[in-house]
């Protein structure tokens, strides 16, 4: 987290290579708020305006460098976000995204393995997938919806297959988003099966891309959690519960009837 890969540009070096102790989100907030405060302070007269300008300037600098003297004095470091989310690490602009999620499903390992091993089934539980088709015993072709209405396609190969226990896959050369995944089916005592999914992929735009995706409601860890929940529901109850399409007083009846027809 503390060092990015690029050091060529002196501005980049200045912005990333100092002793950072402020996390990127906080830096962005600090920069924007500091800039606004500085601008406002400069417009004001008197000592109040001057103080605001100094405060704003300090916040702007803190945001730009990622170093906070107050945090330094207090021994605080907010860059260590991994502590909050141990399974997700990536640098600001490039790098791999790891997502790990687990869900306990009240079905046998065999039943769950069976469903997942047939990759053609996955679009039922993974809403971002349009289709998966089998090319041969090891290779499958995947089509997924991407942000902003785009579609991406790639070929994937099976990397491990332990019946009832584990399935692994990896995208082949040429994938726009190189990715790999493992799903494990772990037994429990009278609690069903723990299904643990680990996904790794090269996110376009790294951490920044993740934030943008998150803003569009397509953050990968949330998506994986929702996929697993649909898997659980489908396997346990035989259906994925729908609430869209229920009546409400939100639209006039005529409109609701037209929509239905």
């Amino acid at each position: 987290m503390r060092h990015t890969e690029t050091h060529e540009n002196s501005l980049t070096t200045f912005l990333t290579d100092t002793n950072q102790n402020v996390n990127p989100v906080e830096r962005a907030v600090s920069s924007i708020a500091g800039g606004a405060l500085l601008a406002y302070g400069l417009k004001q007269r008197g000592i109040g305006g001057a103080l605001l300008s100094i405060l704003g300037g300090g916040m702007l600098l803190r945001g730009a460098t990622g170093h906070c003297h107050v945090y330094d004095a207090l021994g605080v470091d907010t860059t260590e976000t991994e502590r909050r989310s141990p399974f997700r690490k990536s640098s600001l602009l490039t790098g791999k995204v790891h997502v790990t999620k687990a869900m306990t499903i009240n079905k046998s390992q065999a039943e769950l393995y069976e469903f997942w091993r047939n990759f053609e089934n996955l679009p039922i539980i993974m809403r971002h997938l349009e289709s998966v088709s089998k090319t041969d015993e090891k290779i499958s072709h995947w089509r997924a919806k991407a942000p902003l209405g785009q579609t991406v396609e790639w070929d994937a190969e099976l990397t491990s297959d332990v019946p009832n226990e584990k399935i692994g896959w990896r995208s082949l050369e040429g994938a726009f988003i190189p990715n790999s995944g493992v799903v494990e089916f772990l037994p429990t005592i009278e609690r069903g099966t723990e299904v643990k999914v680990t996904l790794t992929y090269e996110a376009p735009g790294g951490k920044l891309g993740e934030w943008i995706a998150w803003a569009f409601g397509e953050e990968p860890s949330i998506q994986v959690a929702q996929d697993l929940r649909r898997f659980k529901s489908l396997m346990e109850t035989g259906l994925i519960m729908k609430v869209e399409g229920q009546p409400s007083g939100r639209e006039p009846l005529e409109k609701a009837m037209t929509a239905k027809a």
Binding site: P247, G249, L253
Partner: peptide, 27 residues
Amino acid sequence: MKALCWFGKHDVRVENVADPTILNSRD
């Protein structure tokens, strides 16, 4: 059909809304 709809604090009204339909096989 007629249904009692919530619109806010101390604001509930009987509205004409669409009839409910079967959305899942266990409905």
